[in-house]
């Protein structure tokens, strides 16, 4: 087996963002043949090689962009010095396939009340990591939740220290009290999340936002939070609201 796959497996296990670059096809004189592989990490470090030199540094840049966008790329490079955009002088051409290894998306549900539980249950049908948070350690006592839900009891503001929040993390604010949001949201707003929504009436959100601004949160930060959370489907019950929230998450996740 190609050792690059072992290293890839280790990176995935350690949940390190990584991008696989493969020379998919080549013709004429090229530094490395089809099948050559390279891993690119988020900090630009690499392992393996697709040929070195100008070609490789261009592939690294493209890989870093692919990781940011979460999209694959198929790129053709000429190494014929007569071509305008040639990345080398070997003479041939290569096609490089770039595949960012996306981590499983995470739902970080703030509040283990009726709606939080309904979101966790319905989301368990999909491929999410599901973290349910509440400041009450006994919030789930005598309740049945899907096995894959991870329950972490702590103050909302503590979560960035306990959970790695990444551009694949969807934050679902469904706490029972606006004050909990006012105390907890600012720390979460400092993280690099994919989506952040908050439940509540328009009045609750105005109250929460005003209090956060007063506490020194910048308006453009606060405006990253979508409130009211969820698509407008006139949902009423917790299950219905959960469907509206998850529909919005899916919409956001697949929007490119």
């Amino acid at each position: 087996m190609d050792t690059i796959y072992l290293e890839l497996a280790q990176a995935l296990e350690a949940r390190k963002p990584v991008c696989l670059c493969v020379v998919a096809d080549s013709s004429g004189s090229v530094p490395r043949p089809a099948g050559s592989k390279m891993l690119v990490y988020a900090d630009g470090l690499t392992s393996g090689s697709v040929g070195g030199g100008g070609l490789e540094s261009e592939v690294i840049n493209q890989a870093l962009e692919a990781m940011r966008l979460g999209k694959t790329k198929l790129l053709e490079y000429s190494m014929n010095p007569n071509d305008e955009n040639a990345v080398g002088v070997c003479g041939g051409w290569v096609i490089v396939y770039i595949e960012p290894q996306l981590e499983q998306p995470t739902l970080l549900i703030l509040g283990a009340g009726h709606v939080g539980l309904a979101v966790a249950k319905i989301a368990s049908l999909m491929d999410f990591r599901i973290i349910l948070n509440d400041d009450r350690e006994d919030a789930l006592e005598n309740l049945s939740v899907p096995d894959k839900v991870e329950f972490i009891a702590c103050d909302m503001a503590d979560l960035p220290n306990k959970v790695k929040i990444t551009p694949q993390t969807f934050i679902i604010g469904v706490s029972r009290d606006a004050q909990l949001d006012i105390d907890g949201f600012p720390a979460l707003l400092e993280t690099d999340f994919a989506y952040f929504g908050a439940i509540g009436s328009r009045n609750r959100w105005i109250h929460t936002k005003d209090a956060m601004l007063e506490a020194g949160v910048l308006p453009e930060k606060a405006d990253q939070i979508k409130s009211p959370i969820g698509l407008r489907i006139h949902a009423i019950t917790p299950d219905e609201i959960a469907i509206s929230i998850l529909a919005e998450v899916i919409q956001h996740m697949h929007k490119k």
């Binding site: 350690e137 005598n142 991870e150 329950f151 972490i152 009891a153 702590c154 503590d158 306990k162």
Partner: peptide
């Protein structure tokens, strides 16, 4: 007994 069927993390980790 659902109350006994939990894996979870508390405030002190």
């Amino acid at each position: 007994v659902v109350a006994l069927d939990k894996i979870w993390q508390d405030k002190e980790n």
